[in-house]
Design a protein around this nucleic acid. Structure first.
Lengths: 203, 203
DNA sequence: TGTACATCAGTGAACGCGCGTTCACTGATGTAC
DNA sequence: TGTACATCAGTGAACGCGCGTTCACTGATGTAC
């Protein structure tokens, strides 16, 4: 006997499965880590058959790329907001926002800077999202990642931007990996550290 | 009919399975990445039954911890050697060695600073190996990770050491993740960047 | 306003896979007397 | 120097698992005339 559902599935054509999958994945990511991400589990959480996701993503890799892209979009927004809110100290503001983002969404942050990014085709959604985030970063850093392609071997302002970036990125990474000796208050760390550093030292 | 081997297995008691497994894992790590690490594959590579590794590692986690510990030992040795070779510019030497290590063994480097480290019990082989490596690092940085537990909220020399560490760590991370815009020559990068930075800026 | 039809986005069964881990076992090795 | 015995470090079968992916399918939706 074929079961005829009492309430016909209103959302047979789900309408927004893609969105639901991405949001679900973001949640899983932070709750259980990247290793726990599986298309099947995501489909389960969305109350949909395990094959349904393939209508929206070619394969798991594509889902990961979409996640990372979403991450870069939010990242860019957070950086831009911070920079706009503190136009007199953009470096400090951006640095703080950068680290705060990483601490709020460590697994997403790792995913964003992981193999998916390195494997992104130029022009892909992910590559574009990353490029835009880099643009915000570079704008605030002065010169920055975009412009940081030195023609000579001499240290220059581009290297200052790169240094600032690396410093903040390193801090973020060490913090979320709990690689720092304990006993520090991360909130104040970024400010304190950034205030100790002067760029543009030796020519 | 029981098979009686023509050549009795000389190394039935393998003698050094643990070593072989660790070395094999290090190779797999760099060849295929951390995701490809499996006890079964490692056993296969060592021409041993898939259950044999359990005589040497309680579980997969233990193998990973052993790998990370081995990594930290080599890391410490590399840093120490670099510092000893350039006593007049320890920061530059250490920074260069730090980044070089990461670039030479990216997957091991990631493993070392990954969840295994965060999950290491105090006093464990891994925790000790990491502590020793941090010691070398801190020694060269002046103050450094070990001493970097500030009592006040004021920026101080400890923060300089942390800043230097974060900068170098960030550079290493961005490089191995290919997150830097292309067109740079990584070999010269560290030196150029470090030379642009002055620590001990504002009080 | 209806109707035929194309396409979209689901379903559920199936395939094939490798993995971690446990177990009872056995041959090799080391040790006490 | 032999011998009895404990322990060490292997073996191979088995369990149970979830995963990614493909496939033929079907109901829902949108579109052209």
């Amino acid at each position: 006997m074929k079961r005829k559902p009492a309430t016909p599935p209103r959302d047979y054509h789900h309408g927004d499965l893609r969105r639901v999958l991405v949001d679900g994945a973001l949640a899983v990511l932070e709750r259980d880590g990247a290793a726990a991400l599986s298309l099947r589990a995501l489909a389960r959480d969305a109350a949909v058959s395990h094959a349904a996701p393939y209508n929206h993503f070619a394969d798991k890799e594509a889902l990961l790329a979409a996640l990372a892209a979403e991450g870069f979009r939010r990242f860019a927004a957070a950086l831009a907001a911070a920079a706009a809110a503190a136009p007199d100290a953009p470096l400090l503001a951006i640095g703080g926002a950068y680290v705060a983002f990483a601490r709020a969404r460590p697994a997403l942050f790792r995913l964003m800077f992981g193999p998916v990014l390195a494997g992104a085709a130029p022009g892909s959604e992910l590559a574009e999202a990353a490029r835009r985030a880099y643009g915000v970063l570079g704008g605030a850093l002065g010169g920055g990642p975009r412009a940081a392609t030195p023609r000579t071997g001499q240290p220059g302002p581009d290297d200052d931007a790169l240094a600032a970036w690396a410093l903040v990125h390193g801090l973020a990474t060490l913090l979320i990996d709990r690689a720092l000796p304990p006993g520090r208050e991360p909130e104040a760390l970024v400010g304190r550290v950034l205030r100790r550093v002067r760029f543009g030292g030796a020519g």
